Computed example of a mutant assay.
Amino acid sequence: MVKPVVSNLAILAFILVSFIGLTQQLSIAEKKNPSNTSWFNISRLLFTKKPPVNPRKGGSRPTEIICMISPDAPNTRRKIWSDRPLFIWQGNVSKVTVKSLNNNQVLWSEPVKDTQHIRYNGEPLKPGQSYKWEVNSNRFITFQIIDMQQRDRITTQLQTIEAQLQKQGANQEAIALAKANYFAEYQLWSDVLQQIYSVNPPSAELNNLRQQITQNLCTDQ
């Protein structure tokens, strides 16, 4: 009666050791080849019951409703690493404007058509300064570029990440994903979203994520 039990225990031990070894091999392979990673982790963070991104809606009629997604409007002013941020919205927007919060001076203004996002392409915004982005000259959200010391540190780390991945032969999307994960760790959600829209052309998975951003974040949670 003892022999069958010992035999079964030996088989279970062998299976367990094999499973652990396979798990370690997959983990090592994923680290060596970042292109095997997925955008699933990013989408899981963005689309929780209490998403870290809090878009602001405006308009009294359905045709007027505009959902300003990023930069968004959390309880405290959104801080951003990029000095050329990406603006994302849902709704009928004809013009996007960036102003200095201190004196309301117009720094950049761009007409838009048939798009739901645009990247700021004016003079680089200044670290530590606060700004507001307006849509259609009647709705706005304020945001702030992080201070110089923190921004320089993050810039150096991002350059290191990109250099390492390029050495491993990673493609543009794999690098954008690594940067998005990095920004997510520091809760720089506007910069996470900017990485999502930085790849051209995107994979089917990434393109699907972009579509989910406007659908999920602009729906009442």
Score class of each variant (00 low, 15 high):
Lys3Ala: 06
Asn8Asp: 11
Ala10Phe: 10
Ile11His: 04
Phe14Ile: 14
Phe14Thr: 14
Phe14Asn: 14
Val17His: 12
Gly21Cys: 07
Gly21Trp: 08
Gln24Trp: 14
Gln25Gly: 07
Leu26Asp: 04
Asn36Val: 07
Thr37Pro: 01
Ser38Pro: 12
Trp39Pro: 02
Leu45Thr: 12
Ser60Gln: 15
Arg61Thr: 12
Glu64Ser: 15
Ile65Ala: 02
Met68Thr: 01
Ile69Leu: 09
Pro71Asp: 02
Asn75Gly: 02
Arg77Ala: 03
Ile80Ala: 03
Trp81Asp: 00
Trp81Cys: 00
Ser82Gln: 05
Arg84Val: 13
Pro85Gln: 08
Phe87Met: 13
Trp89Asn: 05
Gln90Phe: 04
Val93Glu: 02
Val98Asn: 05
Leu107His: 03
Trp108Asp: 05
Trp108Cys: 09
Pro111His: 02
Val112Arg: 07
Asn121Ile: 07
Asn121Arg: 06
Leu125Trp: 00
Tyr131Asn: 05
Lys132Ala: 05
Glu134Tyr: 15
Arg139Pro: 03
Ile145Ser: 05
Gln149Pro: 00
Arg153Met: 06
Thr156Met: 10
Thr156Lys: 09
Gln157Lys: 09
Leu158Tyr: 03
Ile161Pro: 06
Gln164Glu: 15
Ala170Met: 14
Ala170Asn: 06
Asn171Leu: 04
Gln172Ala: 15
Ala178Met: 11
Lys179Met: 07
Ala180Asn: 00
Asn181Trp: 09
Gln187Ile: 02
Ser190Asn: 10
Val192Gly: 03
Gln194Ser: 15
Gln195Ser: 11
Tyr197Phe: 13
Ser198Phe: 07
Ser198Asn: 11
Val199Asn: 05
Pro202His: 02
Glu205Leu: 08
Asn208Tyr: 10
Arg210Ala: 07
Asn216Ile: 09
Cys218Asp: 15
Cys218His: 09
Asp220Ile: 09
